[in-house]
Design a protein around this nucleic acid. Structure first.
Lengths: 196, 196
DNA sequence: AAATGCATGTAACGCGTTACATGATTTT
DNA sequence: AAAATCATGTAACGCGTTACATGCATTT
């Protein structure tokens, strides 16, 4: 009677097909250019899942023959698929267990020289500062290229989420860098000052 | 020659043992009270891993016999274990693939009534607002109870991280709620106003 | 000549969660 | 009387990634 994981992969794939019919190969690229900042799928998931969805009658498959290039198996979502997707969408998302290796290492930071921590922190900050820039650029691009797309508001919301979060992390990193500086400076050692 | 995942579980466990020697059972509780906001381990991982670490000579095991209660297998980290941990800590954390079901559902929000989205968003906001409160409380508690612990600064950093991130999410949720309100109000439909 | 892109798929592997098994003691 | 806590462990299962296999066309 325990809660079982709602394997979300088939629904992620159904969702992608509501944007446009596409092949497994396409889908990998589209995912990387749209939801990569909060979702990922590998070919090893995509191809078998598309097949299973076709068997379940939630998507239809059409073979596109191309001269030279391999055949493309193009999938499209149907009414049954849309129904299944909508049903799943209306179930509140359960919070999945978080695992952040960076924080884990920071938690045990006392076992490393603080210069090294500072370095890692800077790398981390840089990554997220770049993310903020990317989010902004993508927002502008989407507004231009999909102005009348009914999905646009929701796409913007997820981008906005990423931007807010990354910006918060940048701010935290700067604050933490200052903390580390203070820890290194002699003033901070006022209490336990045994040497000198 | 491809990058393989650095299974971090054994190192998380070694790290926990630097705080204090403990049993597998203890460790589960300690993890839940300390790093749960960015890390989790199940018994199914902890027990076998402790055994393997003992075989590898990175931890030592002592049996504590108790009247009535079952024996406790208490593990402690040794020099070899510390070495392995430090080595792992100095490797920059690779960014693991993110998967956020909430954002995935929001991304496909156009398929749901916007009232439902608003509801989910509010639940989400509440969860993170509570997190912020918990982070603050935990920070105060740690400052009191572990004032002279050399790990304290690093523990605070991870808590701070969580607080910043959750606060950013709360802010984003409020902003997004306003966006949803505007979408519902008739003014916003100015462009595509076909009916009426 | 070698690498990259297009395109589909399977097999192997690893990690992690959940369920199950056991059993005494303490709390509700 | 039932449920929760203490305590350890294994087995089964599922999901997801990575590696492998194939092969033509195009780009470097």
């Amino acid at each position: 009677m325990k809660r079982r994981k709602t394997r979300s992969t088939p629904f992620a794939i159904l969702g992608m097909l509501t944007i446009a019919p596409m092949s497994g190969y396409d889908m990998k690229q589209v995912i990387e250019q749209s939801i990569a900042h909060f979702w990922s799928e590998s070919y090893g998931q995509i191809y078998p899942t598309l097949k299973r969805l076709a068997t379940a009658g939630q998507v239809t498959r059409k073979v596109e023959r191309n001269s030279g290039k391999p055949d493309r198996q193009v999938y499209a979502i149907n009414a049954k698929g849309r129904e299944a997707l909508t049903k799943w969408l209306s179930i509140p998302a359960q919070t999945e267990p978080v695992r952040n290796e960076f924080l884990l290492k920071l938690f045990f930071g006392a076992h490393l020289p603080s210069e090294e921590i500072t370095e890692r922190l800077q790398e981390f900050r840089t990554r997220h500062a770049q993310s903020v820039a990317t989010y902004k650029a993508t927002e502008a691009q989407l507004r231009r290229e999909h102005a009348n797309n009914p999905n646009l508001p929701y796409w913007m919301m997820t981008l906005n989420f990423g931007r807010h979060r990354s910006q918060a992390i940048v701010d935290w990193a700067d604050e933490t860098t200052r903390t580390l500086q203070k820890m290194k400076s002699p003033r901070a050692a006022a209490v336990g000052n045994k040497k000198r």
